[in-house]
Amino acid sequence: MNLVDWDFAVTVGSRIAGPGPEVSADEAAAAVVELREGADRSTPLVSEFTGLRTTAGTAPVLVVDRAGWIQANADGFAKILSPIVDKLTEKKGAPSAFSEAIGSRVTGGEVGLMLGFLGTKVLGQFDPFFDPHGRLLLVAPNIVHVERELHADPHDFRLWVCLHEETHRVQFTANPWLGQHLLTQMNAVADTIEPTAILEGVRRGAAAIRGGDGSILDLVSSPEQKEILDRVTGVMSLLEGHADVVMDGVGPTVIPSVEQIRKKFNQRRKGAGTLDRMLRKLLGLDAKMAQYRDGAIFVRHVVDKVGMEEFNAVWTGPETLPSKAEISDPDAWVARVL
């Protein structure tokens, strides 16, 4: 059973995203070299600040274009969704070849629309599900586009992005159990899925979106699924907030214009147009922005209270990760874990 025509999704997404800003061959080559060097330079800076130790080169760094990012995420989504597809096939039975082809083509187009939009926005991403230890993706056209839009110093901005994304690579490679834990949570969603529940979830989600008070995340809304998503939200808030704290902690020591970059970058987030804001809401990106904010508040509060070394108990195992509720109540996490 093919739930999504991934090749079609990549084709649609790549066409929507386009190539990005115009750059000469020399400029493109220089950006690739500088981003690779920025990632390598960031590893010891992140390790020294956080106390997390990892072997250099454990997970590869790939500097990609928009189409490369879209292909990588289509591959990742296919891996994550495979247990869900297996469950649906078991419960519903195999569809006819015609209905499967039509259905997967339509779904592929929808996924392609989403990837095409995101492919113009994402600056970098750590993919923890790529065997054996994950990989770091830096999207060169988007980084160049934003640095030009902000009138930022290119060298400073590229290193600033690398610090954030390299923190994610250190988080996962220093704690190899973390990627498997997230994959386990994704697989747990498959165990909760019933075909009738999917149809009902689509109806609820569509109604919420039409009413302006929902997102695609509303399509996964059974009590069991919400419980799993709450756990994942806690983890993602920790990861994103921790990366922001590291970026702001290390940045002033190596990036002369970091204050101006942060100020302009935060202002840029607020200045999105109506269509951009609507798409961000539908894709749940507003929730992601909240993860950066809430996660950073959690990390700073705990580190200020007990120090970085004690805070690092958070990386011991699944049981020491903060819940979604504890992200909003750091003292509750301290009381439970420390």
Rank of each mutant, 00 (worst) to 15 (best):
L3E: 03
F8W: 12
T11M: 13
E22M: 06
V23D: 04
V23S: 01
S24E: 09
S24W: 08
A25P: 02
D26L: 07
A30Q: 06
A30H: 04
A31G: 07
V32W: 01
E34Q: 12
L35F: 06
A39R: 03
A39F: 09
D40M: 03
S42F: 06
L52I: 08
T54I: 00
A56C: 04
A59I: 09
P60W: 01
V63T: 08
V64A: 07
R66H: 07
A67D: 05
Q71C: 00
N73V: 05
N73L: 02
D75Q: 09
A78E: 11
K79I: 03
S82G: 08
I84D: 07
I84R: 09
D86H: 13
G93A: 05
A94G: 00
P95I: 10
S96H: 09
A97V: 06
A97M: 04
A97K: 13
E100L: 07
R105W: 05
G108A: 09
V111R: 00
M114T: 11
G116P: 07
G116A: 13
F117I: 08
L118R: 01
G119A: 11
T120C: 05
G124C: 03
G124V: 01
F126G: 02
D127L: 13
P128G: 12
F129M: 05
D131E: 11
G134E: 05
I143D: 09
V146R: 13
R148N: 10
R148Y: 03
V161S: 04
E165R: 12
E166K: 06
H168I: 12
F172G: 07
F172S: 10
N175F: 02
P176M: 01
L178S: 04
G179H: 03
G179C: 05
A188T: 12
V189A: 06
D191G: 13
T192L: 09
E194A: 12
T196R: 15
E200S: 14
E200W: 08
V202G: 03
G205N: 04
G205S: 15
I209M: 14
I209T: 12
R210L: 15
R210K: 10
G211E: 05
G211V: 11
E227Q: 14
I228E: 09
V235K: 06
S237E: 00
E240K: 04
D244L: 06
D244N: 12
D248N: 14
V250D: 08
P252V: 10
T253H: 13
T253Q: 14
P256K: 05
Q260L: 09
Q260M: 02
Q260H: 05
I261K: 02
K263Q: 14
F265K: 09
G273R: 05
R280S: 12
G284R: 04
G284V: 00
Y292R: 04
D294E: 12
A296L: 02
V306P: 04
G307P: 05
G307N: 09
M308T: 14
E310P: 00
E319W: 07
A325T: 10
S328L: 11
D329H: 15
D329C: 00
D329P: 02
D331G: 14
V334D: 01
